[in-house]
Amino acid sequence: MSSASESISQAPSKPLPSENPSLTTEQRRYLESALRVNQAGELAAVLIYGAQTPPIVRAHPHLRPLMKHMYDQEAGHFTKFNELISKHRIRPTAMYPVWTAAATVLGWGTAIMGREAAMACTEAVETEIGTHYNDQVRTLLDWQENLKQNGQSLGPELEELLTDIRRIRDEELEHLDHAVEHDAKEAQPYEVLTNVIRGGCRAAIWVSERV
């Protein structure tokens, strides 16, 4: 597995797809914030699965294909948002080092607690991430509908972004389903564990949008 904390390349860039003249300054800022949070969230996901995999697979070898599948999908999501962050010269969150450490500790800690706790972690994280991506899809669809009423469109780059976010959201929700199927709700203490993790995810999203 490659390191998730590799530095983002500073390739030549161009303005956000929000150079579309139909979008407002506020909408452009929304896109920058959304992509910054998405990149930070996918970094965390890669690190969580990377830290969980060795102890989980050691104790439950039959879970190796599932853990690799989920890790590989998260790594793909992270690559996609790294490309967009670099391409459009969006500043990553200043909390990058903090999220790196926190995600690694969360992944390792829940794996040490056992398979059920690791799966409960996945359920909690993917619940919040799925909701976050759903909000972005709804926002882009609202923009699309408003532009259509004025005889305009999102443009090819934002159409592609909408498609990518929908796909990534669906893959995240697939991970949630896998977690539930593998006894996430049997974790002890389930309610405390998932509520703390979900609250931490919401706080991380809020901070990453702003810092």
Results as ranks from 00 to 15, higher is better:
114 G>K: 08
207 V>I: 15
179 A>S: 05
80 K>E: 12
78 F>M: 12
10 Q>T: 08
39 Q>T: 00
96 Y>W: 06
175 H>A: 07
55 P>A: 03
36 R>K: 09
3 S>M: 05
104 T>H: 02
64 R>Y: 09
80 K>W: 11
60 H>D: 13
146 N>P: 13
130 G>D: 02
2 S>W: 06
164 D>W: 15
121 C>L: 09
40 A>G: 04
210 R>V: 04
45 A>S: 14
100 T>V: 02
197 I>F: 13
139 T>I: 00
183 D>K: 04
84 L>R: 15
95 M>T: 06
13 S>R: 05
185 K>H: 15
183 D>L: 14
2 S>N: 12
154 L>W: 14
157 E>L: 01
151 G>N: 03
145 E>L: 15
182 H>W: 09
36 R>Q: 01
115 R>I: 03
133 Y>W: 11
112 I>K: 08
91 R>D: 09
98 V>T: 14
31 L>V: 06
181 E>T: 10
23 L>M: 03
57 V>Q: 07
97 P>I: 01
94 A>R: 08
90 I>N: 03
106 L>C: 10
5 S>A: 11
26 E>N: 13
160 E>G: 08
123 E>R: 03
128 E>S: 08
136 Q>E: 11
35 L>I: 12
150 N>C: 11
114 G>T: 07
9 S>G: 06
23 L>Q: 00
13 S>Y: 01
104 T>M: 10
179 A>E: 04
137 V>R: 14
47 L>A: 07
164 D>E: 14
115 R>N: 00
95 M>S: 02
132 H>N: 01
27 Q>M: 15
188 Q>C: 00
14 K>Q: 09
201 C>M: 15
1 M>L: 11
69 H>F: 13
108 W>Q: 03
186 E>W: 11
201 C>K: 14
34 A>D: 13
110 T>K: 09
46 V>L: 10
167 R>N: 12
141 L>E: 15
96 Y>D: 05
199 G>D: 00
141 L>S: 12
205 I>W: 06
78 F>Q: 14
147 L>P: 04
156 P>Y: 08
92 P>G: 04
150 N>F: 05
90 I>P: 01
100 T>S: 08
119 M>W: 09
149 Q>I: 06
10 Q>K: 08
87 K>M: 13
129 I>Q: 01
184 A>S: 02
176 L>R: 13
24 T>S: 10
70 M>I: 13
80 K>C: 09
162 L>Y: 02
191 E>V: 02
70 M>P: 00
151 G>D: 06
193 L>I: 06
55 P>C: 03
184 A>D: 00
111 A>C: 09
141 L>W: 11
113 M>F: 13
6 E>K: 04
22 S>C: 14
207 V>A: 15
131 T>W: 01
54 P>K: 08
50 G>M: 07
207 V>Q: 13
128 E>A: 10
69 H>E: 12
29 R>K: 15
193 L>K: 07
186 E>Q: 15
151 G>W: 10
45 A>W: 03
54 P>E: 12
171 E>D: 07
92 P>F: 06
22 S>R: 09
19 E>G: 06
31 L>A: 13
81 F>R: 02
8 I>E: 07
48 I>G: 03
205 I>A: 05
211 V>K: 14
207 V>K: 11
199 G>F: 08
15 P>I: 04
130 G>S: 02
57 V>P: 00
143 W>M: 07
211 V>L: 14
65 P>M: 11
176 L>K: 06
210 R>S: 11
